[in-house]
Design a protein around this nucleic acid. Sequence first.
DNA 1: ATTTATATTGCAATAGAGTTGCATAAATAA
DNA 2: TTATTTATGCAACTCTATTGCAATATAAAT
Lengths: 143, 143
Amino acid sequence: MCNQCNYKELLVEADLEPTEKRLRVLEIIGNNAFPLSVSDIHDTLDRSKSINRVTVYRILDLLVEKELVDRISTGGRASYYGLAPNEFHQAHPHFYCKICGRMDCLSPETVSVQMTGFLKNFPGRIDKLELRLDGVCKNCLKQ
Amino acid sequence: MCNQCNYKELLVEADLEPTEKRLRVLEIIGNNAFPLSVSDIHDTLDRSKSINRVTVYRILDLLVEKELVDRISTGGRASYYGLAPNEFHQAHPHFYCKICGRMDCLSPETVSVQMTGFLKNFPGRIDKLELRLDGVCKNCLKQ
DNA sequence: ATTTATATTGCAATAGAGTTGCATAAATAA
DNA sequence: TTATTTATGCAACTCTATTGCAATATAAAT
């Protein structure tokens, strides 16, 4: 979620033509408080303006490749998409409810990860750290 | 990976009939140094004794449900399976190479995660923490 | 030991998520 | 305007996983 990002600018800076559909996909992701699945995004977009599933996949691939968006794995089958960390928002962990399938963002301070020693010695390249908590959310616990 | 686990005992303690196939699936996972995909497991098992894909899926579901085995998500599409933490092995993070798709276990000390404050206040239930590093492994970096 | 019940496995068909190839449309450059 | 490149759509397909039901095998009861 971001109130400060200029999405069109982000696209241009990433060397992507700021087409209507790309902009809409990025906005939907950026304006949402939690990561969305492809079908979430497709459904939202399709409500206002018809768009093909494949186009959504391709736009997401581009946005992930250009690091504007993060692909986040769930305890379930589909990937979720959220705005990538930038000057306005830090990386943060997520909580996945295995009952309702909803994924929430946790604030960056909830969990502190320390791994400098490891990073110094690791012979490969690390691009990304993903930290996810799986469980049952407050609402689903009630039932 | 475990040299101390008695797999048959683990099954019985978990209230699962220790059938030949269940035992073999659990052994294959337990004897391996890194998490395996369903097709890794199926191929290995099929070499010695024919087994149906679906049976492997079902056995894995059971083992995960009974918490003998952990289902670990990759940056890719398939789930991987590794021995669940128990008295002989602690929970640990994983490294996933996005080029060759190989998943490695990292030793538990490489990364320290601190989140007691968060856990105290969280209104839902947390069952599991998954920490994964994505990147490119040493071998794939060379090419 | 034979029958009955229950639990496990196999097989075929299906679902869901994501990808590919090629055609069409839109945008940029010449 | 025409040519070229880029973006989108459509259909078919792949891969991973699941479901329903039939066939076996195992355990329980008589």
